[in-house]
């Protein structure tokens, strides 16, 4: 019997070795290990054996079973792996075909610039204020020290609706409104972005509608050096740490002294090149110390309070920062323009 069992083992293992499909293995399992299989048959004849032989043969029979079962399992695992491999091979795709596109939008370049400026000043403790685009003559001009016959009104020809109402020519009226609201009761730290309008014929450098961001800081003992410090921080953050600023005297009716701020040219770092027209500097914004009459008109005592104000054009900043060559691009909404600025920075 012992020989028979060992014979069966050799025979079964040979068959397992030969098997090439899972079904072959299943057949072998049924044939050798099933209830009607030869090993069971051998065991059934155990009754004829002596008391001493029985456990020996029993143990051997179990060993044979285990050896066959174990080999079957090994082989099965092996065949399964091959089969999976085949299946996956068949599933191969062309990874170079394009992905299913997701429709993505994005902000307008001007909005990006304005929000960048907003965030910059918010970081310095400023609040963001808005105001009406149709303004009264009072807030647009008079409250900013531009009385009715002031020659500087020539500087910004306006779209009037009635004698007293017009499309605002700058966002400065928001400063007057904010100060007027507080009536000298508290400091003001604000910027006001928005659309403004002037009587200009649209061309590469002029637009009858454009954007402005103005800032105002009024408190006790505000110094002109503070204006310089704040603008310097702003310019470095917006344009890069390596850029320098300089202030030049200028004139605006609502500030005294008034300044224009230049930044050093990105291309030549102040040495002079064609981008900066040889000067080494590029004009960015205007500003100055708030004119005492503007403070007084809004209810601030100009002996106690002082402040600075500044204003800039996001279009100009965008044009300088990205080299946009025509201001009309901001308003024609050419998709080939808009999408250029949708990428993460």
């Amino acid at each position: 019997m012992k020989e028979r069992l060992l014979e069966l083992q050799t025979e079964a293992l040979a068959k397992v070795e030969e098997a090439s499909t899972l079904k072959d293995l299943q057949d072998i399992r049924v044939a050798y290990l099933g209830k009607k299989g030869p090993i069971t048959e051998v065991l059934r004849g155990m009754g004829k054996l002596s008391k001493e032989e029985r456990p020996v043969i029993g143990e051997l029979a179990n060993k044979v079973r285990e050896a066959i079962a174990s080999e079957l399992d090994n082989k099965k695992e092996h065949l399964e792996a091959i089969e999976l491999e085949k299946k996956l091979e068949a599933e191969t795709i062309d990874v170079t075909l394009p992905g299913r596109p997701v429709q993505v939008g994005g902000p307008h370049l001007l909005t990006s610039i304005v929000e960048e400026i907003e965030d910059l000043f918010i970081g310095m403790g400023f609040e963001v204020r808005e105001g009406p685009e149709v303004e009264t003559d009072y807030y647009n001009f008079e409250a900013l020290n531009l009385p009715k016959d002031h020659p500087a009104r020539d500087m910004q020809d306006s779209f009037y609706i009635t004698e007293e109402l017009l499309m605002r020519t700058h966002t400065s009226p928001v400063q007057a409104r904010t100060m007027g609201e507080y009536q000298g009761s508290q400091p003001v730290k604000m910027i006001c972005p928005g659309k403004v309008y002037r009587r200009d014929t649209d061309d590469a450098t002029h637009s009858h509608q454009f954007t402005q961001v103005e800032g105002l800081y009024v408190d006790k003992d505000v110094r002109m050096s503070d204006l310089k410090g704040v603008l310097n921080r702003f310019a470095k953050q917006l344009f890069g740490e390596e850029r320098e600023i300089r202030l030049r005297p200028s004139f605006f009716p609502f500030t005294e002294p008034s300044v224009e701020m230049d930044i050093s040219c990105k291309v030549c770092h102040g040495h002079g090149c064609s981008v900066c027209k040889g000067t080494g500097w590029i004009e960015i914004l205007g500003g100055g110390m708030v004119h005492p009459r503007v403070l007084e008109m809004a209810g601030y005592d100009s002996n106690e309070y002082s402040g600075f104000a500044f204003g800039m054009g996001p279009e100009r900043i965008a044009m300088l920062k990205y080299g946009v060559d025509d201001i009309r691009h901001f308003y024609t909404n050419d998709v080939r323009f808009l999408t250029q600025y949708h990428k993460a920075k």
């Binding site: 907003e118 918010i122 609040e127 410090g229 002294p257 300044v259």
Partner: peptide, 28 residues
């Protein structure tokens, strides 16, 4: 003030930050 400042030179003004009580800026 402007006359004195411009002849003194805007370049010679120091860079300072406002000394007033700081407030938290932010969007509404």
């Amino acid at each position: 003030l402007e006359e004195i400042a411009r002849i003194y030179g805007y370049d010679n003004l120091p860079y300072t930050l406002p000394q007033g009580a700081s407030q938290a800026g932010g969007l509404t």
